[in-house]
């Protein structure tokens, strides 16, 4: 059986299995009034599942569309776009990204973070350490209008200096508070990143503390 036939069989099996799975989850995808559009959305999700992508973020995207009263076709397009971004994120965050990392990567791509930056974020943490939170903070900063290269530089500096995901998340929260107080996002990031940086060991110390071989 050649590769195409294997993929075809996988798709058929997945499309057969996904509808009962959606029903079992009480999915509101089934609430799409147009039967053809509903079937098309289910097929998109099934195809994504067959490609090894997580179903949960795709269902969430479809549910958002149902809540926002989007047409069935628009929901299908949104689900397909999300699947494409998840697939791209999987390639960029290789070798074995978690579902949270895939979602974080896909959302980063959706706000306009350039694809090579995902690789840089992945490379800034040792293998096995989740980069979901740094990607989430990068996404939030870019959505606020901070230039992507500036946000990336600050976040990867923190990561290489050994900042924890909680410290990086706090950076995002502090920037939000500063922006609410009237600072530009760019200036707020600059100041807050310096504040977090001052709590971290120097680059040399961080390198010395890191387990041998843990850095990619």
């Amino acid at each position: 059986m050649n590769r195409h036939r294997v993929l075809f069989v996988a798709l058929v099996l997945a499309s057969v299995s996904v509808a009962p799975a959606l029903r079992a989850q009480g999915s509101r995808v089934l609430g799409i009034a147009d039967a053809r559009a509903r079937a098309a959305v289910e097929r998109e999700i099934a195809q994504a599942e067959a490609r090894g992508l997580p179903v949960r973020p795709l269902l969430a995207k479809a549910h958002e569309g149902v809540t926002k009263r989007a047409t069935g076709e628009r929901i299908r397009v949104a689900v397909a776009s999300q699947a494409r971004r998840l697939e791209q994120a999987r390639d960029l965050l290789a070798p074995s990204p978690s579902e949270a990392e895939l979602v974080a990567g896909a959302d980063a791509l959706a706000v306009g973070v350039p694809a090579p930056m995902l690789k840089k974020v992945r490379a800034a943490y040792p293998a096995g350490h989740s980069v979901a939170m740094p990607l989430d903070v990068l996404t939030e900063l870019v959505a606020r209008g901070v230039p992507a290269n500036h946000a990336l530089e600050q976040i990867t500096q923190l990561m290489t200096r050994g900042a924890t995901p909680t410290q990086i998340a706090s950076l995002g929260a502090s920037v939000q508070a500063d922006v609410a107080a009237g600072l530009t996002p760019d200036a707020a990031l600059e100041v807050r990143a310096r504040g977090v940086m001052s709590l971290l060991p120097s680059p040399a110390a961080a390198a010395a503390l890191a387990p041998r071989g843990s850095r990619p």
């Binding site: 995207k61 926002k68 949104a78 959706a110 706000v111 939170m133 989430d136 996404t139 998340a169 995002g172």
Partner: peptide, 25 residues
């Protein structure tokens, strides 16, 4: 219309509208 709370970062939602982003430490 669904709208983002005004103090959050705003992102497009694939449906022609917006959503707010919040990052929890």
């Amino acid at each position: 219309e669904w709208r983002a709370p005004r103090n959050l970062a705003r992102v497009r939602d694939d449906y022609g509208g917006e959503a707010g982003l919040v990052v929890v430490p």
